[in-house]
Amino acid sequence: MSHRKIDVDKFDDEDAFVDENATAQGSTAVSAQTEADVDARATEVRNYLSRGDTGAAVVKALENPPAGREVTTVKDKNTATVMAALAAAKSGDILNIVKSLDSKQVDILMKYIYRGMASPELYNSAVLLAWHEKATEVAGLGSIVRVLTDRRTV
């Protein structure tokens, strides 16, 4: 019964794609550097927020997001930073902030909106829905499609 002992994961091509994607784009491996970056960013975002500059806080929070599947704790931490920035924005400012972002930043924003809505017990979905509406208005359905296809989850 040798076939029962075969390690089938070794033959799983799907797995190979994930690893390849995770390393090819950088900033995905667990490293002290990514962790330090995330912490430093959290502090900066807090500073912006205490000064009331939500626009700058959102832009800063969306910078260089950690992605990949091995860095869950770092990703959670960064998500909390982004959510703090998003929640701080007044509903009237959202559209202007989204408009000030470039298309790459809007895609990252969209990723975090979906990431936040995946944990409704932690983050306020009503706020996220308001952001989602404006982000879709600016970047179109294409942005949502890119979130769905991207393997570098945040």
Partner: peptide, 26 residues
Amino acid sequence: ASHDSTIMIAHGRDNPAIQIPFGGLP
């Protein structure tokens, strides 16, 4: 054209490909 609602354009083997995201479906 790929399923992430972008089209990409490459110019030769060694130049980086350009990515053009757009707002529509793929």
